[in-house]
Design a protein around this nucleic acid. Structure first.
Lengths: 302, 302
DNA sequence: TAAAAATACTCCATAGGTATTTTAT
DNA sequence: ATAAAATACCTATGGAGTATTTTTA
């Protein structure tokens, strides 16, 4: 059986008349008679009662016609949808992001703009550390990811920096320095730091450590925690101080004060990563949307 | 586009390999290449990335393949269902019945047996008087009907009697005759009758009137009501006596006593009606089921 | 008798086959 | 060097056309 049979059959049921149906389809009547007969033979059932003058659909034919119409409509729909997917106007994009990125306006802005422009594309969001996200990209579990560079080298994954974000000092409210307007990095040389393990957050941890080294001191790390949110909570508990991306200041638990850093300081890079030569248009559209946001917020407010 | 394209395409996506897919389908590889190319041309999108060695389905292809599989499955399902309908194992039968018939065990038994044997056939039930049901049959609104013969003559409607049912007298409990074991028709000659209009219930009304005439009296009709249930209620209210089909004794409101009739008496026929030459197998099956119940309960219990 | 469907036949478009080339691993 | 897909070309099945017959309202 072919779709042709269904198309012809539906036309015949609709017209209730072979000659008229043939005219509508645009073929000759005997050709239509043949195709209908072939369909009946394949189904092994009579579809029409021939009354010499005109034909009448059987009960089975009426049931089959209903399904046939639905099937033809579904074929149309599938074609439309496939075309949409090909143009990146439908489908799904799996986007990963690191914890700190989830607070960044470039990231949330990308989600908003993409959803507004491609409402038929589903965004499957997933939080993870940069290392896991890079692996996810390479293995095809993730299509695009907001990460903190650098990523573990992987030829297939491409990374585009979106912004260099200032970092701020996080101090317990009771701390001696907490009353100041701003700090330099060396002001913190004697403090106990709460940092994140290098294994999962190489980008941020290295930026902080390198900046301290450049100022001539090794920070004392009293505690490491994998989550930035718990880092801030440890600071609130008075266990130490930390340096976090400026956008983290959105998260403002009781007992923490954020102070801008002046002078030499670490900077947190934010980047978007995707597979080089990604064929899915929806993914390319997402990456383009994210990159289009660049510039706009490149420099954090002073 | 034809189902052939979908079948081939699904096979290629499943195998991820043109040569292997061609072998599975049972055609040569170049023929398959051509058909896939034709499909791509018709959809206007690339379905596979050619890497020289092997092919990879695009995002759009994966989306389309999912739909294609569903469509092919649905085609199969539609064929199966049409065959079931043709054999009367699926579909719908619209069955009408008169009020009195709905109490008759031949009728309820038919419904039970049919449902047990043809669980995939929906029974659409509809109550109506014999006149309306006969019209419904002729106009195709009803497929089969349990009625009280005779029906208004209509060449296309056939009727088969199922049972001759005894009728019983219905008296108010306080009535002088209500204490008797049984009655003859002439015992009721002086009573006021509650009957049903001849226009809607010609079968029952005529049977009662004719039997009375045969016994030499014209019954005094004090009240006519279109519903048998209200007839019985009027009897309960002491407004008169009536004669109803024995199966109506199932309906037993306070204040009514049913007495068997001995000697010459009316008899209520029960029949099944359907369109002569009905093509729908499910309807034929229903009528056959109803007729098969005949004999069994032909004579009402004494 | 007229209108509709079926039959008889003819034709050609195209699905599918074989042989071969191209391409990437 | 080899496996897979693409290309070139051929074949023949069957979809569709024209002419005609059959059937019944």
């Amino acid at each position: 059986m072919e779709l042709r049979h269904l198309r012809y059959f539906v036309a015949v049921v609709a017209e209730g008349h072979l000659t008229r149906a043939a005219r509508r389809i645009g073929i000759a009547q005997p050709a239509l008679t043949q195709q209908i007969k072939a369909l009946e033979a394949e189904l092994g059932i009579r579809l029409f009662d021939r009354a010499g003058r005109g034909i009448v659909a059987t009960e089975a034919a009426r049931a089959f016609a209903e399904e046939a119409r639905a099937i033809l409509a579904r074929v149309d729909g599938a074609v439309q949808h496939a075309r949409q997917v090909a143009r990146g106007l439908a489908g799904r994009v799996r986007v990963g992001f690191t914890e700190s990125a989830s607070f960044h306006p470039l990231v949330t802005g990308s989600f908003h703009r993409f959803r507004a422009r491609y409402p038929e594309v589903r965004l499957d969001l997933e939080e993870g550390d940069s290392t896991a996200l890079a692996a996810g990209l390479a293995e095809g579990r993730v299509d695009a990811a907001f990460v903190r560079p650098p990523l573990p080298a992987a030829g297939t994954v491409r990374l585009d920096p979106l912004a260099a974000e200032a970092m701020v000092a996080a101090l317990p409210v009771g701390h001696a320095l907490a009353g100041r307007e701003s700090l330099t990095l060396t002001d913190l040389a004697a403090e106990t730091f709460i940092l994140y393990p290098r294994a999962v957050r190489p980008g941020l941890a290295d930026a902080v450590l390198a900046a301290c080294e450049a100022e001539g001191f090794h920070p004392v790390v009293g505690q490491t925690t994998p989550q930035l949110s718990s880092t801030v909570n440890f600071v609130a508990a008075g266990i130490g101080v930390s340096i976090v991306p400026a956008c983290m200041a959105e998260m403002r638990p009781k007992g923490v004060r954020y102070l801008p850093l002046v002078g030499p300081q670490p900077s947190a890079m934010l980047g978007i990563a995707w597979r080089r030569g990604e064929p899915a248009q929806a993914v390319r559209n997402f990456v383009a949307t994210a990159r289009a946001g660049r510039g706009a917020l490149a420099a954090p407010p002073p």
